[in-house]
Design a protein around this nucleic acid. Sequence first.
DNA 1: CCAATGGCTAGTG
DNA 2: GCACTAGCCATTG
Length: 262
Amino acid sequence: MSALEPTDPQGLDRSDPLVAGLAALAADAPAGLLDRVAARWVRVDAAVGGVYVAMTDQGVAYLRTGQDEDEFVASFRGRFARPLLPGGTPPPALRRALETGRPTGVRLDLRGLRPFEDAVLRAAADIPRGEMRPYAWIAERIGRPKAVRAVGTALGHNPVPLLIPCHRVIRSDGRIGQYVFGTPAKERLLRMEEVNLDEVGTLAAKNIHFVGSDTTGIVCFPTCHNARRITPAHWHGFRTLVQAESAGYRSCRHCRPGADVS
DNA sequence: CCAATGGCTAGTG
DNA sequence: GCACTAGCCATTG
C-alpha cells in the first residue's frame, strides 16, 4: 500500500480493486445478490398445520412442520451450507399450493441431492393427487428394483414434503407405511385428497392389490383414476400382477403397475 | 473401510 | 392366513 493513498478508517486499501469491490459489496449489496447466497424462510399454513418453508433464488429448498423457528433454522443449517434469513411474505403460489395440496407453479430447488435421492423424489413427484403407489414401484421405475428400502430412506429425507407428495407412497401390501410427519398425518392427507383408504384396506385384507376391468383387459393399482371407474359388473381383483397378466390383462399405462414398461 | 440402520418385501412355515 | 425373517441397499457413524 502506498503512503500517498488515503487510509481507510478500517485499514483497508481501497485502491486495491478487489478490496474496493468487496467493500462496495458489503456497503450496499443489491438484494438480489444477497439472496443468491442466503435462503429466506417464511411461515405458511398447510394442510398439516403451520409449516416453515425455506426458499432460495431457485425455489423452495426445505419444508418442515413445527412451532419453533430456531429449531427450523438449526435443522436447515444442519443440511444446507448457506445462511437462512427471515423472508417476509410467502409467495401466493406457495400459499395456494400448501392450502390446496396442488403444488402447481411452485419452483423447487433440489440441488445438492444425490442422484439416487433425486431420482426417487422425481418419481414420487409424478404420483397424481388422490392416487398411491408402492415403494417398490418407485424402486422399479428408477431402475433399482431391489433398493426398495433405500427408497423409503430417501423419501424420509424428502426436503420438501407436501410439495413432493411422498405421502402418496405406501407399502406393497396395502398398509400405509411411515411418513416424515407421522403416519396419522399421512392418512389425513390422503383422505383429504379423496383417497378411499377404507376401501384400500378392505381390499388389502382380501389380498387384493390390483384391480382390472374385463371389458378393457387393463389392470391397475386400486387408487388409479382408471380403476375407480370400473363398473362393478366388470371389476376383478388380483393378488399379484402376474396373476392378472396370466388372466390376459395388461398393465395400465397411467398407473403402470409393474413399472418395467417404460 | 466396516457395521449399523431404516418410511420395505417376498418367502417360509 | 398370519407371524416371522432373511435379504436388500443407499446413507451414516
